[in-house]
């Protein structure tokens, strides 16, 4: 078997709450391979968000090791972590986190500002990404002029702009109605089909059903890791 994209070994995370120490993760072992579609589930306080932060290079494990594409994350500096986030990970958030009063095109271009991509390619790349998520005709619109589903698609285009190895989606359908949620999930499934690794954090079992593999966290521990035998197809449901 090839080397996993993410190799997590005894990852622990501790937070100081006043004098008390709270273990958000109590030692997690996990491998995620290139091309997987993984849902991370759990109620709030289960440690799923902490896990996502560690996998997304937004935070560093207190103990244990996490290797991303063969690189040990705990050894990287802040700047190197920023560069990993920029080049290899695409983020999608529940609240979209788009810059207000900024066009869809400029929002999508944002990660390029922190990359080494020459400026002459920016426009072409951003346009391409927006067309891929079906927003080619709304590039000049500001977030306020777009629907929730459209905003989330702008956010997905932004996540794709540096052609990352992995997309990390944190409750991407949480702020959307069922129908638009389905559209967004269809987009993720299509991207997964094209070979992108997708990690979806959710507390809704329904949404997790779109993933091929489901991880469940409780009290800082990984309690179940199962292949999804009954994957929902968002594209089909959306049409029905």
């Amino acid at each position: 078997m090839s080397q996993p994209l993410l190799k997590v070994r005894q990852a622990k995370k501790v937070y100081a709450m006043g004098d008390e120490q709270v273990w958000a993760l109590k030692g997690v072992d996990l491998d995620i391979h290139q091309g997987e579609f993984v849902a991370i589930m759990g109620s709030s306080g289960s440690g799923k968000s902490t896990m996502m932060n560690l996998l997304g290079c937004l935070d560093i494990a207190s103990e244990g090791s996490i290797a991303f594409a063969g690189q040990e994350l705990s050894s990287l500096s802040k700047n190197e972590l920023a560069s990993v986030r920029n080049q290899r990970i695409g983020f999608v958030f529940q609240q979209f986190n788009l810059l207000p009063r900024t066009s869809a095109l400029d929002n999508v271009t944002l990660p390029l500002l922190y990359s080494k991509v020459p400026e002459s390619d920016w426009h072409k790349r951003a346009t391409q990404c927006l067309e891929n998520v079906g927003l080619g005709s709304r590039m000049g619109h500001h977030p306020g002029q777009l629907s929730g589903g459209q905003q989330q698609r702008v956010a997905i285009a932004r996540a794709l702009i540096n052609d990352p190895l992995m997309i990390l989606a944190d409750e991407p359908t949480g702020a959307l109605d069922t129908q638009t949620g389905l559209e967004v999930m269809a987009l993720f499934q299509a991207l997964n089909q094209q070979g992108k690794t997708i990690i979806l954090v959710t507390h809704e079992p329904d949404i997790a059903q779109f993933a091929k593999r489901k991880l469940t966290f409780r009290d800082g521990e990984l309690i179940s890791d199962e292949q999804n035998s009954n994957v929902r197809q968002a594209a089909l449901e959306g049409k029905a």
Binding site: L58, A82, N86, L99, L110, L113, Y114, S115, R158
Partner: peptide, 16 residues
């Protein structure tokens, strides 16, 4: 603050 967080998430270094 949230904008700063987002910029950092998409790859802004502290110096940026």
């Amino acid at each position: 603050t949230r904008e700063i967080g987002l910029r950092m998430a998409v790859g802004a270094k502290p110096s940026d």
